[in-house]
Each structure stands twice: as structure tokens, then as C-alpha cells.
Computed example of a mutant assay.
Amino acid sequence: MAEPKVWFITGAGRGIGSDVVTAALMAGHFVVATACDAAAVTDEVGEHDRLLALAMDVTDQAAVDGAVRLAVDRFGRIDVLVNNAGRFHTGFFETLSPEQVRAQMEVNFFGTLNVTRAILPVMRAQRRGHVVTVSALLGIIGAPFVSMFSASKFALEGWMESIASELEPFGIATTIVEPGAFRTKPLKDRGRTVFPDFAIEDYAEATERHTASVKAFNGHEPGHRQKLASAFVTVVDMEPPPKRWVAGQDAVDGIIAKGSSARRRRYRVCQAIDWPRA
């Protein structure tokens, strides 16, 4: 077995985050698991001598810095950062308040930056590390009723692509995870789904229809969450790890379809333009 690593996982109190904590512990690794409420972590995964559960809000830089210090004090290093914390705001763009829009970006995008900013100095000093950021299929393919969630994930994609080459000289690898839909516990994991803040008559019927669809889908997603968590450990152990990992058949199919569509559109546009000759 390879030498155990120290994992730092955000959003670990529920959903995929808590499953990744369990998978990493089962593989023999040390885990720092953070959530807004540390008790939520131990409620999900139990107590463990290789687990440090910490209360941490990713939007609070002081809290993030404090958690990183506690992690290093306990384990001496941080080898793997899993940026998993996030919120899911639904609604047509015009039906979302400015406060909801900012809250979506604050957690999913700026929160991820806060944690990574705090941990990169530790990894640079070690001259090794691995930053894993959970995006989504919606970080590649936009869709109605999830425009701001999709925007937050598109932002993460561009940021992660850009810092990959910045970090390579220091022995720090990066991986973007692009999962499709994985099964939830409807009342727990999707309990923090945020729906539109106010109604606009033109969107009323569609909002009602999409809201019902989101609620009905909860708990019936095609992906198996525990298999995804186990695969996290496999991917992190790869040498070198992939820059991108598309997880779930729905995500694979969707991204391939978008790529094929983009090639066809690009061909038609190029054919339609009368390019100047040299």
C-alpha cells in the first residue's frame, strides 16, 4: 500500500463529501473533514483516530486559516485538498435576487478560492500536493433554471484550468471533477437547495414545473454515490492524476454530445464566413 496521505475535505457533513471522508479513511488515509457544523461530520462517518472534524465556513477566511493551522498542527502536512463545499441555487435568472446570486458565487466560487489560498502555501513548502475541485456536468453544459449554479461551476473550471500550470513547478497537481447526477438522501443532502426568491408572472408556470421536477428527481439520480467516493481514492492515487475526471455515464454522454455539437456549429460558421485571402 502507498504511504497514507493527509486529505482536507470541505463540505464533509453530508452528501458526496461525507462519502469521500469514509472512503479515504477506509483506504488508510488521514482526513481533515470540515463542515459548518463539525458534529455533522461525526454524525455521518463516526469517530476515528485518523479523522479531525472541524467547523469551518468556507466564506470566512479567518475560519479557513484557523482550520488549516489545526490540520497542520495535528497531522504535520496536507497532501490532498478536496474542494467539495457548495450550495445549489435554482431558479430562472430574473427570479433570483441579487443576494441569492452573490450567495451562490460566494460559497461555490469564492469559498473554494478561500480554502485553496490558505492551503497552497503548505503544499508549496512541501513541494507536493494535489488540489481536487468538484465542478459538475453543469460546469460544462448550461441549462435553464440553474443558471447561477452553472455560472459558479463554469468559473471554477476556468480558474482550475489556469492555475494548473502555475502550480506544476511546485509539484502540485490539479484535478477537476465533473460528476453527473448522483443519488441523494432527499431530506438531508438536498435540504439546502435554494429555490427562487420571488415570482415573475411570465416565469410562473415554468418555475412551478421545474421546481417540481427538481424535487421529484431528488433521491432518484442515476449515479451511485459510494462508488463515486471510492473512485475518488483511485483517482487521487494515480501517477500522474488526471487534469479532468468526468464521473457518471450521464456526464460522459452529455459532454461528448456538447463537443460534437460544437464541432458541427464551428464548421457551419466557418463555411458561412468569407475569410479574406492572404
Rank of each mutant, 00 (worst) to 15 (best):
D189M: 05
R128D: 03
H210K: 00
P186I: 04
G139F: 05
S18I: 07
E201V: 03
L51F: 08
I256E: 07
E106W: 01
P196R: 06
F154P: 08
H210T: 13
L187T: 13
T211G: 12
D250C: 06
R124M: 11
R77E: 02
A125F: 04
A143K: 02
R263P: 06
K153I: 07
L167M: 08
F195Y: 06
N84L: 01
E99N: 08
A136F: 03
T90C: 11
A136L: 07
V80Q: 01
F93K: 10
S260T: 09
S261G: 04
F30P: 10
K243V: 08
C36W: 13
E3T: 10
T175W: 03
L54H: 01
D253G: 05
G15Y: 03
S97P: 00
I255E: 08
L52Y: 15
P169V: 12
L54K: 00
R190W: 15
V269F: 06
F110Q: 00
V68K: 13
V236C: 08
L51K: 08
D79C: 03
N114V: 02
V21Y: 02
V233E: 11
Q249H: 09
D197K: 05
V72E: 12
A155E: 03
V131I: 10
G15F: 10
I141K: 06
R268M: 12
F109Q: 00
D237F: 06
A33Q: 14
I255M: 15
I140E: 10
V82D: 00
L54W: 02
G223N: 11
R102G: 12
D37A: 09
S150P: 01
A40G: 08
G111E: 00
G46C: 05
A63P: 07
P276T: 05
K227D: 05
E99T: 09
K188M: 14
A231I: 13
M160W: 08
V131K: 07
W245I: 12
P98W: 13
A206Q: 15
T42L: 01
V80P: 01
A38P: 06
V246Y: 02
S18K: 01
H130I: 11
T133S: 02
T10Y: 09
K258N: 04
T10R: 01
R225A: 12
K258P: 05
A231D: 14
K153V: 10
A262L: 14
Q100I: 05
F170L: 04
C270E: 08
C270R: 11
Q249E: 02
G15T: 02
M26I: 09
S135W: 03
P196L: 00
V107E: 02
I78Y: 06
D43T: 12
I119C: 04
V72L: 14
A63F: 15
R117G: 04
R74D: 08
A164D: 15
E161T: 08
C36F: 02
I119Y: 02
P121D: 12
V6R: 01
R77W: 05
P144T: 14
V107Q: 01
G254F: 03
I172T: 05
G254D: 01
F109P: 00
Q100R: 04
V132L: 00
G91F: 11
